[in-house]
């Protein structure tokens, strides 16, 4: 009888669990459907297009096997791909440095409670709210080699004008000036909120033990900010690898492809050269690279991030 009762309870439990699972599934189903239609399907189709000769506007196309991959890895696309990868990583490296180092430095400087500091924080953060295209156009004027404000100021100090956006040596730096101006305030705000969450007890205890400001920062602030640093690192890495708008407005990938970042190249292949087949291959490979780097970052960071709890 007892066994029978247990069996009934077990069956009821099982059906309850099934119902709960179905309920859970129904709750996430809209999100899953959204992802399936707008993320996974385009992703699968992207890989498929890479095996065709489609140009996006023709109705008919053929499957061409690995032809586009051969173009990328063994043909004329290889040099451009390597150069573009180098430019993209270089841009990403400097954006991460500016966001993390600049943001942390400004956060440490502006971590004070006064109206003046509050106003300064707002001023530094404000560029994040301005549309990239708008600020890019303003920076194009500032950086113009003949009529620009920066060269005008440099001229006052007897410096020769620099072709900021039109020289392959300075074009990427010029774009990074705009990037730095936009992102440093964001980094500062994220670090500031994290700094405010660190208990003052740690600092008081360290002060009692004779630790100076640098040691307190090095041994308390820095380790306890590591989850924030990880967050900023990963989000900045992904965002900066996908940089497009500032490049499109300021340089169009030039001069001589010195700012030809990966996403701009993909766009150029698809919409300027009508080679969406090649663009799909470049995008597919880039997706795999991004995925691998993000996974590796997460894995490494799990070992080195300190959580307060």
């Amino acid at each position: 009888m007892k066994a029978n009762g247990n069996a009934i309870t077990g069956r009821r439990g099982a059906s309850h669990r099934k119902r709960e699972k179905a309920k859970d599934f129904l709750c996430v189903a809209p999100a899953l459907a959204f992802f399936a239609v707008f993320v996974y399907y385009p992703l699968v189709d992207l890989f498929r297009i890479g095996f065709t000769n489609w140009n996006l506007i023709r109705d008919d196309y053929k499957y061409v096997g690995l032809k586009n991959y051969k173009w990328l890895f063994k043909g004329s696309g290889f040099d451009t791909w390597l150069a573009s990868l180098k430019v993209t990583f270089s841009y990403t490296f400097w954006e991460i440095v500016i966001t993390l180092a600049g943001g942390m430095l400004l956060a440490a400087l502006f971590n004070r409670e006064s109206k003046a500091f509050s106003a300064m924080r707002s001023i530094v953060f404000m560029p994040k709210y301005i549309a990239i295209s708008t600020s890019a156009i303003v920076f194009m004027w500032i950086l113009n080699d003949q009529y620009g404000f920066l060269n005008f100021v440099m001229g006052i100090f007897g410096k020769e004008p620099v072709a900021w956006l039109n020289s392959e040596r300075t074009a990427l730096t010029s774009v990074l000036i705009l990037t730095g101006w936009r992102v440093v305030g964001y980094g500062m705000m994220i670090y500031l909120s994290a700094m405010k969450g660190i208990s003052k007890d740690y600092y008081e205890a360290a002060e009692l033990d004779g630790a100076n400001a640098f040691l307190r920062f090095r041994h308390i602030t820095l380790p306890l900010l590591s989850p924030t640093t990880l967050f900023l690192f990963v989000t900045t890495f992904i965002a900066s690898m996908k940089v497009f708008q500032s490049i499109d407005v300021m340089t169009s990938g030039g001069p001589y492809e010195s700012t030809n970042v990966m996403v701009y190249w993909i766009y150029d292949l698809a919409f300027v050269q009508f080679r969406v087949d090649r663009a799909a291959v470049v995008a597919s490979v880039f997706f795999v690279i991004l995925l691998a780097f993000t996974a590796a970052t997460m894995k490494i960071s799990n070992k080195s991030v300190h959580y307060e709890s």
């Binding site: 956006l165 039109n166 407005v249």
Partner: peptide, 13 residues
């Protein structure tokens, strides 16, 4: 004249 702003600069010149 080369670059994104080259047309504008050329006109101005």
């Amino acid at each position: 004249a080369y670059g994104k702003d080259a047309s504008g600069v050329m006109r101005q010149n």
